[in-house]
Design a protein around this nucleic acid. Structure first.
Length: 249
DNA sequence: GCAAAATGTCAAG
DNA sequence: TTGACCTTTTGCA
């Protein structure tokens, strides 16, 4: 929709004032930092800031858009397409200063080509906090969530409970490049798949849903590598999953 | 029909 | 660390 005049509305009403400000403006660009999305509009200093949170979703399609149903926070229409936003934890207009403050609280985002992992490495190796909690901290790394935390630790063979201080520089560097690789694949395909082809039951074609992860949401199921039942526990307010044998270190 | 869970964050204590 | 919040889907009765 970039370059198009956007028709914006908030059928639910919670973002009615904001939508009215956006309506009729040209969308100039859209950018993501970690889990935060920013839209820039012509002639408007503020930017639209969207954070989906746990259950926010964008749904898009070709016009005509279906009649608004349920709680539809924001609908944008341009160039024969609509984009519906439901359930976000944030949908607001931010001034340049507010945006700067928000970005200042974020660690490097593995998806951004220019990101420098060094600040993340320093925070990790200087912290006694478990690596499973550090990976969820957006001030350490921006964009990593509960799926990537569990999966990247499995792929590295590292227990989520390991303190940051017990992480080597090489292990941190390896996790960073693995996150970069996995998250880019996620952007490219629109879904998260962290299993190597040879570790899926069906090795040809796109991964089936139940084949996408090594440990995430696989409590008590056998580890794909060693058969040991996958364990789960709360860490950093979310459930973390790991294989007690493959991630014994 | 209702509870619980879900790729998350923040304020309060 | 806990509870609140945003909304939909799924599983159970």
């Amino acid at each position: 929709m970039v370059g198009q005049v956007i028709r914006a509305s908030s059928p639910q009403g919670r973002f009615a004032a904001g939508a009215a400000l956006l309506d009729g403006r040209v969308l100039m660009g859209v950018e993501a930092y970690g889990k935060h999305l920013f839209h820039r509009f012509e002639g408007l200093g503020d930017r639209l800031h969207v954070h989906l949170g746990l259950y926010g979703t964008f749904v898009s399609g070709s016009v005509p858009a279906p009649d608004p149903r349920g709680a539809l926070r924001l609908r944008m229409i341009a160039d024969g397409h609509y984009v519906d936003l439901r359930g976000p934890t944030r949908c607001e207009l931010l001034t340049a200063g507010e945006r700067r403050e928000l970005l200042a609280r974020l660690g490097p985002d593995p998806l951004r080509p220019s990101a420098d992992p060094e600040p993340a490495r320093q925070r990790i190796v200087r912290s006694k906090t478990p690596i499973g909690a550090l990976l969820m901290d957006q001030a350490v790394l921006a964009g990593v969530g509960n799926v990537y935390r569990a999966e990247v630790l499995f792929r590295a063979g590292i227990a989520p409970t390991r303190p940051g201080t017990a992480m080597s520089d090489l292990e941190v560097a390896t996790m960073w490049s693995d996150l970069r690789h996995l998250m880019r694949a996620g952007v490219r395909t629109g879904r998260i798949v962290t299993t190597a082809r040879e570790h899926r039951d069906h090795r040809r074609g796109p991964a089936r849903d139940e084949d996408r992860f090594y440990v995430y949401r696989r409590t008590d199921l056998p580890c794909r590598i060693c058969g040991t039942p996958i364990r789960t526990a709360e860490m950093a307010a979310r459930k973390v999953y790991w294989c007690p044998r493959c991630q014994a270190r």
